[in-house]
Design a protein around this nucleic acid. Structure first.
Lengths: 205, 205
DNA sequence: GCGCTCATTCTACAAGTGTATACTTCAGGT
DNA sequence: ACCTGAAGTATACACTTGTAGAATGAGCGC
């Protein structure tokens, strides 16, 4: 009846392949850290999901913190945060966001990883660096103007906020919001930060 | 050299006053949960800050989780999230946000508490309910229109996102952003969600 | 002054944390 | 067929976690 600490079912057909095992651990780590946050998972949990014992994590990654750093890198590297370029950037990104944060969707990704691990200071540091190197940099290059960096991070802020309220907390109104209506407002928000015509959409305050 | 588990200095001049002790614990809890998140603090930490022993927490609040619920209530109850009403709501709230999230500011508040505790599912549930009863409700009543609830939560989302990027993670561009320039963009974002004239600021997408 | 009551603390426990050392077991080259 | 080096596991340790039960001690009415 007791499962003890025996390797999980994931190891059933993988035999002593160091590279594959390392990858399995890393995959399990990304998944677990994204679902439960840095402080919410133990190395034993990750090891079980990967079908190994906890000690292999330290063998291959040195420590839990270094494993987290690699998991963050994996999660932030692919350019899935913004979709589309130029004039369609705002609307396409908004639609993608609305779809992915739907309550029934079970998509993971860097925003969930960030939100759920942000409480830990070391994890926060690691993620700040990763954002600077990946999402922030890419988005900053996409946007025009001299304060592009700030606007890019504001765009990430809006996305993170929606992920938080809709998927992590699950507040009522956003959870029940029709995707197209949500996408409409988010598009307007993004257009403030990425004005289609340089100064056209800018009312003087 | 060792501090052991002796009561902290906060208890020096408070003598066997149950109500005052309970309040001291609650204050320490709000502070600690806001700084380190639900999973980042132990009951012993909170007890030490309050100048008591860990067991008093269970005596007065039942469990760590119930203490957290009360701390959330205390943190969310005062209406400090939005400042101003009507046409000045957007700009004033934006200015307040920019000031409070400045890297050198050390203000706490419900957003930090939420962001740092969101990883824990039970904590998330508790905070979702608190938002519905406090910030979300108040803001929803302030905004006009029928989808006010959704726009109110989007406004909270924008604020939470800025808190996350600027204060929790400390990303470069937002940390270095001049307050007035940040406030300018955030004002524009809020005006999308709280249009000064009902349909004037609404470009057809 | 005395005793009672309740605020507060002591001791303890069972479970879980990250990680180090020592051990076992398998695959491949010769 | 072996032996060696690497892949993987077992055991253990020192520590922290939330919470339970019993013991203690101070203040107040009398």
């Amino acid at each position: 009846m007791s499962a003890k600490t025996t390797p999980g079912p994931a190891a059933d057909r993988r035999k002593r392949d160091a590279a594959a095992t390392r990858q399995a651990i890393l995959d399990a780590a990304v998944d677990a850290f994204t679902r439960h946050g840095y402080d919410g998972v133990g190395v034993r949990d990750i090891a079980r999901d990967a079908g190994v014992t906890a000690m292999l994590i330290n063998r291959y990654f040195g420590s839990k913190e270094e494993l987290f750093a690699e998991a963050v890198e994996v999660s932030f590297a692919p350019p899935t945060v913004i979709t589309g370029t130029g004039s369609e950037l705002a609307e396409r990104t908004a639609r993608t966001l609305a779809a992915r944060t739907a309550p029934e969707a079970e998509e993971l990704g860097p925003f969930l990883l960030t939100l759920r691990s942000a409480a830990n200071p070391r994890a926060a540091e690691i993620m700040r660096d990763a954002i600077a190197r990946h999402a922030g940099r890419r988005l900053g290059e996409e946007l025009p103007g001299d304060d592009a960096g700030m606007r890019a991070e504001l765009m990430l802020a809006v996305q993170a906020g929606v992920w938080l309220m809709r998927r992590v907390l699950g507040t009522a109104a956003l959870a029940a919001a029709p995707p197209e209506e949500l996408a409409r407002y988010v598009t307007l928000l993004f257009q403030v930060l990425d004005p289609p015509a340089a100064e056209a959409g800018m009312p003087h305050p």
